[in-house]
Design a protein around this nucleic acid. Structure first.
Ligand SMILES: NC(=O)c1ccc[n+]([C@@H]2O[C@H](COP(=O)([O-])OP(=O)(O)OC[C@H]3O[C@@H](n4cnc5c(N)ncnc54)[C@H](O)[C@@H]3O)[C@@H](O)[C@H]2O)c1
Ligand SMILES: NC(=O)c1ccc[n+]([C@@H]2O[C@H](COP(=O)([O-])OP(=O)(O)OC[C@H]3O[C@@H](n4cnc5c(N)ncnc54)[C@H](O)[C@@H]3O)[C@@H](O)[C@H]2O)c1
Lengths: 209, 209
DNA sequence: TTCGATTTGTGAAGTCAGTCACAATCCCGC
DNA sequence: GCGGGATTGTGACTGACTTCACAAATCGAA
C-alpha cells in the first residue's frame, strides 16, 4: 500500500473526482482528460493533474486517464476498498433522515447502530435497525467493527457524546451539532447548516457593496 | 457600512466565533480574550485576533473584547442584521428534516417555501408550511423576498433545480446533493455527507500506515 | 516513419493562509 | 500618576495551496 501522504486540500477533492468519474463512466467515457474532469468539478485542470499525481497515477500523455483505472486508484487512496461500520447518535429529525438514507457513496459505509436516550425513541425502528439506548454503545461498538460515529444530538450534549464515542475507540466523528468538538485523537469533520447559511449571508451582503 | 473584503478563510470562521461568543455571553462573560475564544473554536489565538481585525473591531489591550459589542460586529459583518427568506426544494427525508428545524442560527433565516414535484408530497404540511409544486417557485420568489435556496432533491435533478433557482433571481444556494453545481452568478455552498465520510475514510486508512 | 495535434507531469512562480513575536496600550492598585 | 501584569494589533516570516507554462510523451494519419 503506497502510502504517500496527500495534502488535505487534495484529499477533500478526491471524492468529487470520484463521483464525476463514475458519472462520466456511466455515460460511456472510457478515457477522460484532466480538462473534462476539471470542468465537472469546477476547478483548474492543472490542479486536477497535480491532485492525481499524488496518487502515483499514470495517465497517458496525449490521451488522458482510463476512467476505470483512475476510479480504482482514487478508491484505494481513500481506503474505499473495504467497508466501514457507522453509528448514529441522536435519532431526531436529522438523525432519522440520515438513518433512512441507504446509499452512502456506493455502499462502503454501513449504518450498524442507532442510539438515543429518549425513552420514546428507544425501540422504534428505521429500516431494519432498532434505536437502542446510548448505554449499549460501548458494548455494541466492541462487538461489531464500528469506526465512524455521526453525532446528531442537540448541541448541548454533543461534546459529551463525542467523549463517549472516543472512549469506545471510535476515531472518526462526523458532527452535525453547532459546536466545535474537542477530541484527543479522533478526527472530526463538522457539517453545520447554520454556519453555511451565515457564510452565504456574508456573500449576499457584499453583493450590494 | 465599512465593507472591507474579508478573506474567505476568515469568513468561514466568523460563525464559529459568533456561536462561541453567544455561549460565553450566556455564561456571564462580559469580556473575552482572544485566547479563550481560540480555545473554544480550536484555533490559534493570533488567528482569532487577525480575523477579528478584518472587522475593524477594537478590542481593548490588556482586557479583551466586549462580548456584546464583538457579537454585534460579527453579525454586521455577516449581514445578520436583517432577515433572509429561504426556500427548500425536494421535500424528501432530508428536506423534511431541514424544514422542521426551526432555529436556524438565531432566527435570521426564515423558511418561507417548500417545493417538490411528486404529487404525493404536494399539499402535505410541515409546521405551518404547505409543500407546493415547483412550478409555483418563480411566482412565490417574486412575491416574497427570497434570497437563499436549499436543494435536497435527488442528485440527478439538482443542476436543473439550481438553474431554476437562478432564473428566479436567487443568488445563494446551499446544495445537499452529491454533485458540483454550475451556476452563472449564484454563490453555492455544498454540504455532502458521502463526501465527508469518504474524507474520514482516508484518515482512518492512514492511521494504520 | 515522420508530423502535428493532444494531453500529461511537474518545476517555478505566485497567491493566500497561518504563526510568531513583540511593541503599543490599557487597567488597576497604590 | 506610576508600575506591573495582561492582552491586543500587526509586521514579518513560514508554509500550504494554486496556477502557469512548457518539455516530454503518445497517438493517428499520411
Ligand atoms: N434538523 C436540522 O435541519 C438541523 C440543521 C442544522 C443543524 N442541526 C443540528 O443537528 C442536531 C440535531 O438536530 P435535530 O433537528 O435532529 O434535533 P432533534 O431534537 O430532532 O433530535 C435530537 C435527538 O437527540 C436525542 N438526544 C438528546 N440527548 C441525547 C444524548 N445525550 N444521547 C443521545 N441522544 C440524545 C434526542 O432524544 C433527539 O431524538 C442539533 O444539534 C442541531 O443543531 C439540525
Ligand atoms: N438523506 C440523507 O441522509 C442524505 C445524505 C447525504 C446526501 N443526501 C442527498 O440529499 C438529497 C436528498 O436526499 P433524500 O434522502 O432526502 O432523498 P429523497 O428521495 O427522500 O427526497 C428527494 C425529494 O425530491 C423530490 N424531487 C424529485 N425531483 C424533483 C424535482 N425535479 N424538483 C423538486 N423536487 C424533486 C422527490 O419527490 C423527493 O421528495 C439527495 O441528493 C441525496 O444524495 C441525502
Amino acid at each position: 500500500m503506497k502510502s504517500v501522504t496527500i495534502p488535505p486540500a487534495s484529499v477533500a477533492r478526491l471524492p468529487l473526482y470520484l463521483y464525476a468519474l463514475e458519472t462520466l463512466q456511466s455515460e460511456g467515457m472510457g478515457t477522460i482528460s484532466s480538462e473534462i474532469l476539471a470542468n465537472r468539478v469546477n476547478v483548474n485542470a492543472a490542479k486536477v493533474r497535480k491532485d492525481l499525481s499524488f496518487l502515483g497515477t499514470h495517465g497517458v500523455r496525449g490521451v488522458g486517464y482510463d476512467s476505470a483505472v483512475l476510479g480504482q486508484e482514487i478508491r484505494e487512496a481513500l481506503g474505499l476498498t473495504r467497508d466501514f461500520g457507522v453509528v448514529i447518535v441522536g435519532i431526531g429529525n436529522l438523525g432519522a433522515a440520515l438513518a433512512s438514507y441507504d446509499s452512502f457513496g456506493a455502499a462502503r459505509f454501513h449504518i450498524v447502530g442507532l442510539y438515543d436516550t429518549n425513552p420514546e425513541k428507544i425501540g422504534t425502528r428505521i429500516g431494519d435497525l432498532e434505536v437502542r439506548h446510548l448505554r449499549h454503545l460501548a458494548a455494541d461498538v466492541a462487538e461489531h467493527d464500528v469506526e465512524i460515529g455521526i453525532i446528531t444530538t442537540p448541541t448541548a450534549v454533543a461534546q459529551e457524546v463525542a467523549q463517549q464515542l472516543e472512549d469506545c475507540g471510535i476515531r472518526s466523528i462526523l458532527n452535525f451539532a453547532q459546536t466545535v468538538l474537542h477530541t484527543e485523537n479522533a478526527a472530526v469533520r463538522r457539517v453545520d447548516l447554520s454556519t453555511e447559511l451565515q457564510i452565504l449571508g456574508y456573500y449576499l451582503r457584499s453583493d450590494r457593496g
